[in-house]
């Protein structure tokens, strides 16, 4: 049944890229988070470092070896190693939510879910195919955003400071473990809601709450309350990975054609 599963993944991808409104939503958030915001930050740090006085307090909380760096260099390090990796938790949640809501609740809304359920795939296989398409899509958006960011910020840093961007272990942990884990959690939460949600908007609204913990984590970076490091990220990845697996498993047990379709 690999052919059927890959057909669903391809169809979902084609559907989301054909929907301009959804595509725009998915493109704008990563564009702002990974290109616009860091560029403004970098330019401010270069041209008006004195304007960023509020951050002096934060810099004093950085590890000692970092405090020896120049303000601008420190700002780049803080931005690149502490703040930007967390944006890559928002992006997969957002992309996965939009995709999962559209692919699961959207099928229900368009009355195409019943047709899918008449296929010789088990509900479990269908569920896997749908989760897979949302997961692949969110990872694709994350990686494209990462590459675009790397390219633009690399050029900007080089032009402004003459230095190079060096990828730390934080990035490996975020892109390799944390980002897939939060993406899976977002998809599973949406899919769990989808049984009750009657339209895409309702499912997306429920998913919006998932962003909150990540927002707190980002705020923590600015306030210096919890500065992320490899250990924190690895711990988070482990917890969230386990949570994602648990959610996936329990969701699957609840699913049946009758539950998905309701009593129509």
């Amino acid at each position: 049944m690999n052919r059927a599963i890959s057909a669903i993944v391809k169809k979902d991808m084609r559907e989301i890229t054909a929907n301009r409104q959804l595509l725009l939503t998915i493109v704008i958030v990563p564009l702002v988070l990974t290109l616009v915001v860091p560029s403004i930050f970098l330019l401010s740090a270069h041209f008006a470092p004195q304007e960023m006085g509020e951050l002096q307090e934060l810099m004093r909380m950085m590890p000692e070896e970092m405090q020896n760096k120049e303000t601008e260099e420190l700002m780049v390090t803080l931005l690149f190693d502490n703040i930007l990796p967390l944006f890559f938790l928002i992006i997969p949640i957002m992309a996965a939510s939009v995709m999962a809501a559209s692919s699961f609740v959207g099928e229900k809304e368009q009355s195409t879910l019943e047709t899918l359920l008449y296929s010789p795939l088990t509900v479990k296989q269908l569920f896997h195919a749908k989760v897979l398409s949302s997961f692949l899509f969110s990872m694709l958006v994350s990686w494209i955003s990462f590459l675009a960011m790397l390219l633009l910020l690399g050029v900007e840093v080089n032009v402004l400071t003459g230095g190079m961007l060096i990828l730390g272990i934080n990035w490996l942990l975020v892109l390799g473990l944390l980002s897939p884990a939060v993406s899976l959690i977002a998809i599973t939460m949406i899919v769990r809601c989808s049984a009750k949600a009657q339209n895409v908007m309702e499912a997306q609204q429920k998913a919006a709450f998932l962003i909150l913990p990540v927002v707190f984590l980002i705020a923590g970076q600015f306030l210096g309350a919890i500065l992320i490091n490899a250990l924190i990220l690895a711990g988070l990845a482990l917890i969230l990975g386990l949570l994602a697996c648990l959610l996936l498993k329990t969701s699957l047990r609840k699913f049946s054609g009758e539950m998905l379709l309701g009593n129509r």
Binding site: A18, S111, E114
Partner: peptide, 15 residues
Amino acid sequence: LSGVMTEHAQMYNNL
């Protein structure tokens, strides 16, 4: 084994 056609089993509008 079966082919089913019902009012609620629709297809994709954008295809």
